[in-house]
Design a protein around this nucleic acid. Structure first.
Lengths: 240, 240
DNA sequence: CGTGTTAGTAACCCGCGAGTCAGGAACTGC
DNA sequence: GCAGTTCCTGACTCGCGGGTTACTAACACG
């Protein structure tokens, strides 16, 4: 028995917060701008949230949930596939095809998600240092790197991956690429063709760039002055 | 004829600024902490610099110069090599070896530079949004991507690179990897073995990850429900 | 319609930190 | 030592923005 609260207050605050958050950055976003944008006064804000951070926490939380759901979806898809049995030796082709399809589908979903949240991820990447959100994006990225590393090792065990591919570097490479893509998304006006990206990346990772025959690895030679100890991998081709 | 200024004032302010800048982030670094760190008062600061930003500009400027020098060094090395003539057709091997060596050397130098400046680059990446420095790192990265793209096209023209390798994706991939590596450097206590990284990356880029024979590309099949129009590249291998 | 309760308002408080300035301190040349 | 000049200090102002609060508006219930 009393005046009822505006039912849209919270949701419109969150929406306005996301907007201001993106426009001004986490540190410079002002509560008064947010409340004005939804026709409320500063005082009203504190009826719904305890602090500026509490509001942002809601925005960031939504993002975290979405990405977490996506990551576990991929893990489950992998687990289900592997559970059906890894191909014993040489006719791995259908297995590979299915793996490839999972990756393509999940990568595409990931890009869609990055597209929807490109404004927020951008701010979290570039402007969260010194706030309570500074770790959010990097933690998510580290988790992705770890995931790729694990999958990579599993592939090696099943002999579906060259043995000398370093899992850590591959993880940084794949996730790093997506990181730059995500960053680039935030500068675009309209959604690009994600299939293009997904396929280009898959091919590039799987095949490399070599267009000419592979030179035989030099046998223990020490021609280079300074770079030849510690030969972890056989050197073969040029790079860029 | 008068009291001479402390000759180390500027340089010790810059040093202290870099330290505070890293500790607290650009936005939260306080002038008084910086001056106290070098035994000066707040007032003295304004004898040497007009504002907080002016001081940080000096720190960031040093970094920009260093990276610019490095980038042009690589460009020159490439130009010099290409100026000596691109191999006509099939005995490209020594040319490739030299290219590879340039890349290895320059990549290593780049990692050393990233190591020396890891604290500052980290702050610029994560905490510069909303400041005048927000574009610095991303501009440098974009320049690097553009460089890789150009080199990639040149390689293709000389038939040293598979024709279907998309230059833009390759650029994002290489630079994205270095970006994550740089970020990871800032969490390390001691300098890792850069040769390891450089070689792993070179091999991975050139060779890809495939450990099993390449399946023939499907001829225009439309098996996949949603992902098969717009086939920019032949699909071949799995990814991670 | 009157009363009690909650929603919402706007003026206020308050800490923080950038930038200022009047009053010394230190040094030089004579 | 003294005058003149520049360096340096630390207390000050001031705007900014988060959070508070005394007050008013809107509504439900009887």
């Amino acid at each position: 028995m009393a005046r009822p609260a505006d039912p849209h207050a919270r949701s419109s605050l969150v929406a306005a917060a996301r907007h201001e958050f993106v426009r001004a950055g986490i540190q410079k976003a002002r509560i008064e701008d947010i409340t004005q944008a939804c026709g409320l006064s500063k005082g009203a804000f504190y009826l719904h949230y305890d602090s500026k951070e509490a509001l942002f926490r809601e925005v960031v939380g939504q993002l975290e949930v979405q990405f977490e759901v996506m990551r576990t979806a991929r893990e489950n898809a992998y687990a289900e596939l592997i559970g059906r049995g890894v191909p014993s030796a040489r006719q791995a082709s259908p297995f590979i095809a299915e793996l490839q399809e999972i990756d393509a589908r999940e990568d595409r979903k990931l890009l869609e998600l990055l597209w929807d949240w490109r404004d927020v991820t951008d701010v979290l990447l570039r402007g969260s240092q010194g706030t309570e959100f500074e770790g959010v994006m990097w933690t998510m990225l580290d988790r992705e790197v770890a995931r790729v590393e694990l999958e990579c090792r599993a592939m090696k065990d099943a002999h579906l991956l060259r043995d000398d591919v370093p899992a850590d570097v591959l993880g940084l490479m794949i996730v790093g690429t997506y990181l730059l893509v995500a960053r680039r998304l935030s500068t675009l006006q309209e959604k690009p063709d994600f299939d293009h990206w997904v396929r280009a990346l898959q091919t590039l990772i799987a095949q490399g760039t070599s267009g000419i025959p592979v030179a035989p690895p030099k046998k223990k030679s020490t021609q280079k002055k300074q770079n030849s100890r510690n030969a972890i991998l056989p050197r073969k081709k040029k790079r860029s």
